[in-house]
Nucleic acid binder design. Structure first.
Lengths: 189, 189
DNA sequence: ATAATTTGTAATCGGGTGTTGACTTGGTGG
DNA sequence: CCACCAAGTCAACACCCGATTACAAATTAT
């Protein structure tokens, strides 16, 4: 058995990036409390102390890892007439993407006091406000918040709590109803 | 200074009840991970070991404390024409009740794997199904789930993440929009 | 080549967690 | 009265956490 190369080339930016992607994965899977710095470091194949060095603390790592990825741009592209359908599809068509998922990370970190300010600010600035700007009519911010509530609640029920629709046709019905509810909030005026 | 009476009268059912109410409060405030058995015992003025004795484990305590209280009966009473208004009012009129709040407890425990099965079962059996039974038309379970998502998401945004409506009139607009969205899901057919 | 700075390592600190076992105390039935 | 058993106490266990310190190795600058 050949010895594992004792250390890869020294590259600060590469290791910070490795830490960030590992942190995103673990925060997604385990939440803020459940994610341990040792586990993150291990997955990044990096020494634990480097987390403190580069990000100051676990909270600093979370703030650096999660917020930049919270965006609604993909679904917001296109005309708002099809927004409900697009959003519903993006929620039900769980691409089962391994690794980082901003929504799961948010849901599983929301119970940790240290993470709350970070999450609130990012959600406000990068999701709710951009969405409200695309709405017309009265109370755009409130309607945007309700759309956000629908999305967040939907993901909490299905992905975190694991509530499953009973059948494939029920899944279709769910997606259609969701799309209709969202679109009603978009078209309201 | 008189000595504090070294111990109150021995009463197993009274102490289990004290543990339960203390547990409900702490789980509400700190979530499942954040709530410590020692803190619960201290608030109940009870020895920590009694938690293990009476409930087997922290998970057992959670299962005994939270699910029985998850109910929608108060809002479900009355005719379904006013359901949206009633539900929206019950959410925005945060009575700021101190102590136990099943919705907060659910939200802050949802990220803990040990709590998830308990929460899912209780939500399913005591909230979603009773609500679906009161709905008419197609896909009642799916529409009930979406109403649940709206409620859960709304509370997550406002109470857990602390997103605040900018003004009092904005709060009214939010409540009305929420009522309308819920009622639309109720009346759909 | 030598000094200085950055990058990575290893061990440890102080504290907190849920849970357990042995023990003591209180009330009660024989 | 006293033995018995439930109810409560106490101290410890084994484990995990985030953070820090002192040190070694590699890179860069002089």
């Amino acid at each position: 058995m050949s010895e594992t190369p004792p250390h890869r080339k020294r590259d600060a930016s590469a290791t910070t990036e490795a830490i960030l992607t590992a942190a995103r994965e673990v925060f997604t899977e385990k939440g803020y409390d459940g994610a341990g710095t040792r586990e993150i470091a291990e997955r990044a194949q990096v020494n634990v102390a480097l987390i403190s060095r580069y990000f100051g603390s676990k909270e600093g790592l979370f703030a650096a890892a999660v917020p930049p990825m919270m965006t609604l741009d993909a679904v917001l592209a296109g005309d708002m007439a099809g927004f409900g359908t697009r959003l519903a599809a993006s929620l039900t068509h769980k691409t089962a993407r391994k690794g980082f998922d901003p929504m799961l990370a948010l849901l599983r970190a929301a119970s940790s006091p240290e993470a709350v300010p970070v999450l609130r600010q990012a959600l406000q600035a990068q999701v709710l406000h951009p969405l409200a700007d695309r709405l017309e009519g009265p109370a755009t911010l409130e309607r945007a918040a309700l759309i956000g509530a629908l999305v967040v609640g939907f993901d909490l029920l299905t992905r975190v709590l694991g509530l499953t629709a009973t059948g494939a046709d029920a899944m279709d019905a769910l997606e259609q109803t969701l799309a209709k509810s969202v679109q009603a909030l978009v078209d309201q005026r």
